[in-house]
Design a protein around this nucleic acid. Structure first.
Lengths: 116, 116
DNA sequence: GAGTTGTACAAGAGACCGCTTGTGAATGCC
DNA sequence: GGCATTCACAAGCGGTCTCTTGTACAACTC
């Protein structure tokens, strides 16, 4: 199986939306949106246990919202912006006027590899 | 006490995101995106029971994503676009460059009453 | 090798979600 | 009034989510 999807289908936004629907997970994304951070440091920002935060990281990673890089014993996480696209597409679908047009503007300003 | 008890809810991003995270509910939103529809007609588009669809409508309404209008024994629902704004704000927060700037452009082009 | 550190995996409790069946309330029509 | 239609409310069931505690494992340090 070379490709996960045959066309430029809107993917499954379910996982991304569910992942975003939790305030703790959104906070994690805010922490790593500009710099990558090790799991332990992320966990240190919460009153939850390290394991609970690790599970949240797992949810975000499963949704494709985090990239992981191992460095020694640590694992560094960072926001993977492109996985937000299904949400943006969804939004533009329901946003009749403004966002729909602006989406094209975004794509013009930030060309991406053609989705085959 | 603030006066935020109207049918058009303040829309915490959690409720909106959770509501959007279900494919059946997204389908409901697509149905009423351009025209308002009675609950029964919405339910007729699904294999679920009328009650199940009614519950989905309740979730969407609680998230502020639907407006309700009573007409006789029927209740007509339509998409309430503005409740999507928290999602748009969230997205622009995590979208480093393009969407963040374009959001301002949207607000300039489509001014709305100041929130709060 | 032994200990320490950083992290994920596993199992379980309690809450919540989505669905079904059953029922009731409001409106319209005869 | 009596009845049909439209729809929400209520209870219950199985599955899923989120959290906790306990544990395992890999990589560094000595």
């Amino acid at each position: 199986m070379a490709q996960r999807k045959k066309s430029a289908a809107p993917a499954a936004p379910d996982a991304v939306l569910r992942a975003l629907a939790d305030p703790n997970r959104r906070e994690i994304l805010r922490l790593v949106q500009h710099t990558e951070l090790p799991a332990g440091q992320i966990a240190g920002c919460f009153t939850l246990t390290q394991q609970a935060v690790s599970q949240h990281i797992g949810v975000l990673r499963a949704a494709g919202l985090l990239t992981e890089r191992r460095e020694g014993t640590r694992r560094l996480y960072a926001l993977h912006h492109e996985s937000l696209e299904p949400v943006r597409d969804l939004l533009s679908e329901f946003w009749p006027d403004a966002l729909g047009r602006l989406k094209k503007a975004v794509e013009t300003a930030h060309p991406r590899p053609p989705t085959r």
